[in-house]
Design a protein around this nucleic acid. Sequence first.
DNA 1: AAGTCGATGAATATCACTTTCATGATGGCG
DNA 2: CGCCATCATGAAAGTGATATTCATCGACTT
Lengths: 143, 143
Amino acid sequence: MKRAKKKIFADFIAQRGLKTTKQRDIILDSFLSSDRHLSIEELYLKLRAKHPNIGYATVYRTLKLFAEAGLAREMQFGDGQTRYEHVGEGEHHDHLVCTRCGHIEEFENETIEKLQDEVANSRGFLVERHRLELYGLCSGCRK
Amino acid sequence: MKRAKKKIFADFIAQRGLKTTKQRDIILDSFLSSDRHLSIEELYLKLRAKHPNIGYATVYRTLKLFAEAGLAREMQFGDGQTRYEHVGEGEHHDHLVCTRCGHIEEFENETIEKLQDEVANSRGFLVERHRLELYGLCSGCRK
DNA sequence: AAGTCGATGAATATCACTTTCATGATGGCG
DNA sequence: CGCCATCATGAAAGTGATATTCATCGACTT
Ligand SMILES: [Mn+2]
Ligand SMILES: [Mn+2]
Ligand SMILES: [Zn+2]
Ligand SMILES: [Zn+2]
């Protein structure tokens, strides 16, 4: 699965006439083996341990590339940092966010998705994407 | 209704030991007679026409006050600007956002709200608030 | 091997707030 | 009323995250 995503990125790079670099390989590998929902800075700091020579700007630009390649999605959970989450082929999910510890859980609910479309249709909207986030206390933080 | 909201703000001001000012009166009046979902800058520019002496910082601080007083809610629709929308007593709604013209519509759907609670319960989350936004083309922009 | 053009990293710029500070207003009190 | 302790205001400066610039490096073509 990691292999498949690397292939997707390699194809994207080739098709756009871009170049394979050591940094991109390292950043992609690290991204793929990371927690979902990482901020630029989090990934940058994680990388810096083993690769002190990789710059923040490169991490920033590379994550943007991942998003363009369809490997990542930019998310905003209101904490002031853009987070990048992993995206699988044709996958979709929404989020539960803990306002105390920052824990993020994902969920899917077909019925909700369907109702959203109905609402949009009734208003003449053509929906391209949506965001549904539930903020509150996770089970751990409720105690 | 405008009168009622002015009363709410006056009470809030009094109860907090703050002061009535010409600027606050003007800004509140303008906010109440504006489009829903205004950014700080939009309201500032609108005001500047008739009141060139009112500063950006005052508009900024006053909108924050409205939010604290329960008259306004801060919203983020991903265009890089915080927007303030009108809040009515105990009201709630979600949004349809046009990605082409910026038009914003509101909707309510009890069934979706109920399903959200079910999802949260099944994960042990206690939901405090949520955001549901549908992004796409409004009926006008689809043509 | 050389040349071309994209990639990198450090530094700088942007952008939307957010705070500071000197000065101006408000309103409780005598 | 008139004082004056406080709060409010506006211009300017500060912040923090993101975005861009620029000199230099390194891939890939020939
Ligand atoms: Mn996710
Ligand atoms: Mn609204
Ligand atoms: Zn938690
Ligand atoms: Zn539109």
